[in-house]
């Protein structure tokens, strides 16, 4: 199950599993983003390289105009994938506050 939508603040909210089967839908949604954009990952459980590709393509397109994606509420699992991929050097990433109860 994967969901992607705008919230009231204009951020993109992603939830569930962003795998190779869901990546085309995520790409289609993000292709409509024209400005600097926050992606809230609080409810994103999983991302594979197909999902990383979607983020990378969108970020490159937006950075061409000096904009880009900012990734917030990133879980530890997904932060690890970003680190292994070198995405921590390419994106602004804010890790989720995990001090509270699950």
């Amino acid at each position: 199950m994967f969901q992607i939508e705008f919230n009231e603040a204009g951020s993109v909210v992603v939830a569930g599993r962003l795998d190779a089967a869901q990546a085309p839908r995520a790409q289609e949604f993000l292709d409509e983003v024209k400005d600097e954009c926050v992606v809230d990952m609080a409810r994103l459980e999983y991302v594979s390289s197909a999902g990383l590709g979607v983020l990378l393509r969108t970020h490159k397109r937006l950075m061409g105009d000096g904009r880009g994606l900012r990734l917030i509420n990133v879980s530890n699992h997904i932060k690890d994938i970003f680190m292994y991929s070198g995405f921590d050097k390419l994106f602004q990433i804010e890790v989720a506050d995990q001090s509270g109860p699950d």
Partner: peptide, 19 residues
């Protein structure tokens, strides 16, 4: 995959098996 490459040189290809 050169994970230290600047953004303009990064492509999604090859990242899966690299991981």
């Amino acid at each position: 995959v050169d994970i230290n490459a600047p953004l303009e040189q990064r492509t999604p290809g090859g990242l899966g098996l690299y991981l």
